Amino acid sequence: MKRQLLFALATAAALSAVSLTACSSDSSSSPATPEVSPTDPTQTTDPAQTQTDPAQNPSDPATQQNPSDTTSAVTPQPTDPTDTTATPADTATQPPVDTSVTQPVASDPCEGILPQPIAFPMNEFADVGEVYRNIQCNEKVVFLVRHGEREAGIGSESPLTEDGALEAQEMGAKLVGPTEFKFIHSGFVRTYQTALNIAIGRGQSQMLPDSSVVNFAADTIKQLADGWYLKDKELRDTVMKRDSIKNVNVIYAAWVYEGQYADVFYDLEERSMELLNTYVIKDYAAMPKYTLIASHDQVLMPLTAFATQKQIDLKLHEPTSRKWLSYLAGVAVIINDKNEVRYVPIKGGSSGTI
């Protein structure tokens, strides 16, 4: 009788473990990213080894380890009705069952996740932490954000300021969770440092006192730098001089929101979809659970406007309007297990615009 009772309890616990096993929170493999060069950010990429875009600057690399999580179910063994090894005993002599002991059960990967995603508005930036917490167990996400605040200079070697690094770490603290992120950057020092400091902020990586980095790797996609949407740089410079425009971002805003300077840029929809389908959106099964891409404003401003159907206001018209994409702001691209995609404009800091 005692052995039958213990066997019944074990079977019930196993069945409980099975019932709590839900959809996996991560894929078992990571995608092969097109045009990715694993390099060190201080090295120069060999143009003969990677496809280049005429408007791009060369990038600097690092290697990426792609995380994966697995869940397992416990299969209960059926009771054998022919088993006669158990010896009946007088129930009056059996010790009482201690019901105060909690039996361990398998954790639910979807525990705490809402059954339906929140419909974030398209005309304002949502906090990246809120979007991260809203990702469903059957969804994966790519966060595309502008780099953090940089030092003066727009060259590829211009680093983050101390405030820029700190703000990136504060953004990373909003993304704390058990599953690691895959990181991608454009190859510029500031995008590499942005990705690194976000990883440090979420506890995935760390920097030692001697400035060496522990447990951080990233892929480099140099096409995701300023110039992705630019078709004719010489014509851009000509019309800026002709129209007395000093800030190139004014031309970007006029093109995106008003259709001006169409001969200077590629078609917004076609070029945005090319970027997404080439470097961002893969088949659901081939994607990591979480990816973060650190890029630039002249990539992410048009992409964010496209993804929100221009509902997000980034209309820069000097001197009347100074709205532009802020540091650590951009768009989240979310894909579910049916390969359906939704977009959310996101901010890593206090505001999505500057």
Rank of each mutant, 00 (worst) to 15 (best):
D283P: 04
S321K: 10
S212A: 10
V333P: 03
F183P: 01
P115L: 11
Y132D: 03
A329P: 00
S351N: 09
S68L: 09
L166H: 01
N134L: 06
R322M: 13
S59N: 08
I346A: 02
T39P: 03
D163N: 10
L166S: 02
D267N: 05
S186K: 04
G153H: 01
G148M: 00
A62F: 15
K246G: 14
L5Y: 09
T161W: 00
V105E: 08
D60Q: 11
Y132I: 06
T99M: 06
A332Q: 04
P115V: 10
T39C: 13
Q51R: 12
E124Y: 13
P288L: 11
A119F: 07
A92K: 07
S350D: 08
L300K: 05
W324K: 10
T70F: 15
P61M: 05
T84S: 14
D163L: 04
Q223M: 15
V131G: 04
Q260G: 13
N66E: 08
A86K: 08
T44Q: 15
T71G: 11
P121C: 13
G352C: 07
K282E: 09
S28M: 12
Y279C: 08
Q43G: 11
T93N: 09
T99P: 00
A106Q: 05
E111N: 11
F188P: 00
A286D: 12
H317T: 05
L268F: 05
Q65V: 15
F181I: 02
N215C: 14
V248R: 07
A89K: 11
G259M: 14
T70W: 13
R146I: 05
L166E: 01
T21C: 10
T42M: 11
L196E: 04
T278Y: 03
D232R: 07
A253P: 02
F306P: 02
Q51A: 15
H317P: 01
D226G: 09
S272D: 07
Q51F: 15
K282T: 05
V97M: 12
I135K: 06
Y279V: 08
G129E: 02
C137D: 01
V239S: 05
V141Y: 07
K282S: 12
Q298T: 13
K338L: 04
E111M: 12
L6D: 04
N57G: 11
E270L: 15
P121G: 10
E157L: 15
M171G: 00
T291M: 15
T238Y: 14
K282C: 10
D243P: 07
A286N: 06
L20E: 04
Q136L: 14
T11W: 12
T52Q: 06
